[in-house]
Design a protein around this nucleic acid. Structure first.
Lengths: 109, 109
DNA sequence: CCGTATCCTGGCGGATACTG
DNA sequence: CAGTATCCGCCAGGATACGG
């Protein structure tokens, strides 16, 4: 936590904060990642239950985006009935400090 | 940064991460706060220019929300033409660590 | 200069039904 | 079980004009 200065974007180079938000900034992504940080490996249906209010479609879309961004890995087990599990990549796990800070701050409300 | 465990909400107690996001989670709030963290004290018009793409209406709405949440202070100088300045409260300044982490992560993209 | 008042639109995301 | 397909409602937020 030493000597990191915040900065806006300059014309040409985009602000890294904006870049990060572009990936994890939509309504549900934060909470999906929270669940994955806590539970490690989670099935689709578990996420659906845990994230109260989310629709299967939205969950599906958000998970694919996160997969495409290299935050999440999707593993399919060829069983019947099918089983699919989601886990964070290393890049995804590195988000944990953000969530810690977010929680610390949120607790003071 | 020791021994903070993440957690979801339990029925009754809301997840602090969700609580935090409820306050600073909308599209522009992150970037408004970023600017205030960097510049300290900023006028309405400066924010309007700095946050490229935001409309005056939206900026106004977001600033009032932040004021109501105790993140931002609004100071009016009774001059002609009028001058209005925005600054972070202590609670607002405590958000800095979140932004640091967000930047650190964003830089690796 | 600092906003508010109006009007309007795009797209996020909910609900539901259906398939491999 | 794990999604996809379809339809649709809603509102965050843009554009603009105007007032104190």
């Amino acid at each position: 936590m030493e000597e990191v200065k915040l900065s806006k974007g300059t014309p040409g180079t985009k602000c890294p904060i904006e870049a990060a938000l572009g990936i994890i900034g939509s309504k549900w992504t934060f909470l999906i990642i929270r669940d994955l940080l806590i539970d490690g490996t989670v099935r689709f249906g578990e996420l659906l239950k845990s994230l109260e209010g989310i629709s299967p479609k939205t969950l599906s879309v958000r998970l694919r985006e996160l997969e495409e961004s290299g935050i999440v890995v999707r593993t399919v087990y060829p069983e019947v009935p099918p089983r699919v599990e989601y886990t964070l990549t290393d890049k995804g796990k590195q988000l944990e400090s953000i969530f810690i800070e977010l929680k610390v701050w949120g607790l003071k409300l």
